[in-house]
């Protein structure tokens, strides 16, 4: 395996969880809901995925469990913010605090155990090509799922009636309601989709990225995914670009640490967070781009008037 190939492979594995979580949150935010609980849903997905795969020995069941955990967490958020109209920012924070605690509790018995790794697919012939083979045709299914989901979201949001309804709900919930669309139901659906994706992202961490359970293993990736959505100005294609950019930064830090030049490892480890802040500054400085695309109703509660 050449060095370039190794770098490309690790960049893909570092970018996939970011892309999965961000594309889900993008749909949630497009419907006008800000769910700051991505980190909590992700870490619950990670522990559920690991636990299920370890107990049953099947990585596929692990993925199912991760998705289930993510959706369950997101429905808790949906019930509070949509049915009980609680403050979305505070509820999202609560979801993250709760998820980090509960995952730690569940995962206590699984710390240090060897996990089940999601096996990469193998296309005879194609996967054996030099360089491109393993990079393009030798990934596990979740990598392809993340790209397919991105394409699907892009298509649904821009080309279908459903996408129009979602965007209308996020743009002006009173108008969408007046037109007869069930704002709360649409938002429940979009929040659950966000939970599904975050759960997948968490499952990817504990089943493919490092097939282990480590407490707080999401390590702020949920927050970076949230930042990616802002960075992409709510456009699915740019989310994919952003996720791969951040994945690259994450991996470069590790590689430079490995080479061992005199930069403190802590500085390299904090690089993804610093780059996130820098990226937010750059993109938010462009008021036109952000103002035009920000869902107008984001974060606002909606109570239907009969």
């Amino acid at each position: 395996m050449s060095a370039l190939e190794a770098v490309l492979l690790t960049v893909i594995t570092a970018s996939t969880p970011l892309l999965l979580a961000a594309i889900g949150e993008l749909v949630t935010e497009r419907s006008g809901v800000l769910n700051l609980g991505v980190e909590g849903m992700m870490v619950m997905g990670a522990v559920a995925g690991f636990a299920a795969a370890y107990t049953t020995g099947s990585a596929a069941l692990g993925v199912v469990a991760a998705v289930g955990a993510g959706i369950a967490m997101s429905l808790l958020f949906a019930f509070l913010t949509q049915t009980l109209v609680t403050n979305q920012v505070a509820t999202g924070l609560a979801l993250t605090l709760f998820g980090l605690g509960l995952s730690g509790l569940i995962g206590e018995g699984f710390t240090g155990l060897p996990g089940v790794k999601l096996t990469p697919i193998h296309v005879p012939g194609l996967s054996d090509l030099p360089l491109l083979g393993p990079v393009l045709f030798g990934q596990d299914l979740l990598v392809y799922a993340s790209l397919a989901l991105t394409a699907l979201v892009a298509w649904v949001l821009s080309r279908t009636r459903l996408g129009l309804v979602i965007r209308a709900t996020g743009g002006n919930h009173h108008s969408a309601h007046a037109l007869g669309y069930r704002v709360i139901a649409v938002r429940y659906g979009c929040i659950a989709f966000g939970g599904l994706c975050s759960g997948l992202a968490g499952g990817y961490l504990s089943l493919a990225y490092t097939p282990l359970w480590i407490e707080n293993m999401s390590a702020g990736r949920g927050w970076i995914a949230l930042a990616l959505v802002v960075f992409s100005t709510w456009a699915p294609r740019r989310v994919a670009v952003g996720a791969y950019l951040f994945g690259t930064v994450w991996i470069m830090g590790l590689y430079v640490q490995g080479i061992g030049i005199g930069i403190p490892s802590q500085l390299l480890s904090s690089l993804p967070y610093l780059v996130t802040i820098a990226a937010l500054v750059v993109i938010s400085g462009n008021r036109l781009l952000t103002k035009v695309n920000t869902p107008a109703c984001i974060g606002q509660t909606f109570v239907p008037d009969r």
């Binding site: 509820t91 609560a94 605090l97 605690g101 509960l102 730690g104 509790l105 206590e108």
Partner: peptide, 21 residues
Amino acid sequence: SGKTTQVFQGMLLFFILACDT
């Protein structure tokens, strides 16, 4: 487990927000 504390604290925030409604 000591993690129970964190779970309680997270639950408390959920209940606070729900009750404020």
